[in-house]
Simulated scan of single mutants.
Amino acid sequence: MESRLSKMNLDILSIEEIAGAHAGNIYKIEALSKNENTREQYIYKKFAEGRDQEVEIHKNIEEIMTSFSRVVNVWETSPKAMLMWDLGYPVKARFEVLPIAEKKMLISDILKVLASLHGTDTAQDKLPVYQLNAEWKDWCLEQLGKLASRKSWASPQWESTIQEVYDRLDIPHYKSKCPSVITHGDPHLENIFYKDERIWLIDWEWAAIGSPLRDVTILMQDVYDEELISFVPEFYLQCLRKRGFILDNDDFWSDLSYLYIDHLTMMLAWEVEKYFQGYVSEKRTREIIEWKIGEIERVREELETKGLKGRI
Rank of each mutant, 00 (worst) to 15 (best):
G307F: 11
M8W: 02
A48T: 03
R298D: 06
S149M: 09
L256Y: 15
P128T: 00
H173R: 12
K195S: 13
K175F: 06
Y194W: 10
A31S: 05
I26Y: 07
M266G: 00
I171P: 10
A101D: 14
I15E: 15
E164I: 01
W270E: 07
L106V: 11
W85F: 08
K195M: 09
P212F: 15
S257H: 12
D125E: 13
F47A: 10
M266F: 08
S116Q: 14
C239F: 06
Q124S: 09
A154V: 02
A123S: 05
Q53R: 13
Y89W: 09
V165G: 05
E290N: 09
E190Y: 09
Q143G: 02
E190A: 05
A123D: 03
S116W: 03
A93Q: 06
I312M: 14
D262F: 05
I296R: 09
S281Q: 03
L111Q: 14
I261F: 07
I229V: 10
S160F: 00
S149N: 13
E17T: 08
S211P: 03
E282T: 06
L5M: 15
A81V: 00
K28T: 00
G119K: 05
C239R: 02
E295C: 11
F95A: 02
S33V: 01
L5V: 06
E302F: 03
F235I: 01
I202D: 08
W253L: 06
V72I: 13
I57D: 05
S69D: 14
R214V: 01
I293C: 06
H118K: 02
L308P: 05
E2D: 14
I100G: 01
K283S: 11
T66L: 14
D215M: 10
F68D: 14
I312C: 08
A208T: 12
D170L: 10
I29R: 12
T38W: 00
N60H: 12
L308T: 09
I209L: 13
N9C: 03
E227Q: 13
L219K: 04
I12L: 11
L219N: 02
A19V: 07
R311V: 04
P156H: 06
E304V: 09
K92C: 00
K46D: 13
L240E: 01
I296H: 09
S211M: 12
T183G: 01
R286S: 04
P179H: 10
Y166P: 05
P212G: 13
G88A: 05
I110H: 11
H22W: 08
E271H: 08
M65S: 08
I289P: 03
I289W: 14
A101R: 10
V232Y: 08
D251C: 06
V280T: 13
M220L: 09
R168P: 02
K274N: 06
F245A: 10
A115Q: 05
K59H: 12
D170G: 07
F193Q: 07
Y42K: 11
M1R: 00
L201H: 12
Q221R: 02
A93N: 09
E164P: 01
